[in-house]
């Protein structure tokens, strides 16, 4: 899977990294059980600080998306039953983004289409 980082963007590099890995899993480009590159190799390949990659990996682990196993690296976790707590959290994160789109003048139908195209790129896990 190709990772593209915008070097001078306002979004910090570790957040871009985290988001792209999540999208990659959703699209099925990387699957549960796959291991991510070592922090050193990943940082060297991208030419970024090792702390950046480390931070992204810890973020992903905190969200339950990968598991960091000492010696064997970062492994993408299998899908688990989603808790209502987690579902609530995703809802509360999604709401302001959609609301902002409506406030800025995107019609409801356009928002639905937008969400639809995004979902089409992704696989059902």
């Amino acid at each position: 899977m190709i990772i593209r980082i915008e070097a001078e963007a306002d979004v910090p590099i570790y957040t871009q990294l985290t988001n792209q890995i999540i999208v990659g899993i959703a699209r099925g480009e990387i699957i549960p059980g796959d291991s991510l590159p070592s922090v050193r190799a990943f940082a060297a390949d991208l030419g970024v600080n090792m702390h950046t990659v480390n931070k992204s990996y810890h973020e992903l682990e905190k969200r339950g998306i990968i598991k960091i196993v000492p010696k064997s690296g970062a492994i993408i976790s299998p899908m688990e039953q989603i808790t209502s707590e987690k579902q609530q959290q995703i809802l509360s994160e999604l709401k302001p983004v959609l609301a902002e789109a409506l406030v800025l003048g995107v019609s409801k139908k356009e928002v639905q289409q937008l969400v639809g195209t995004i979902l089409e790129e992704m696989k059902e896990r």
């Binding site: 190709i2 990772i3 593209r4 070097a7 590159p37 390949d45 991208l46 030419g47």
Partner: peptide
């Protein structure tokens, strides 16, 4: 021009 850094997870 937007400056990009890129890598491929499978290149290793």
């Amino acid at each position: 021009l937007k400056q990009m850094k890129v890598t491929d997870l499978s290149v290793r």
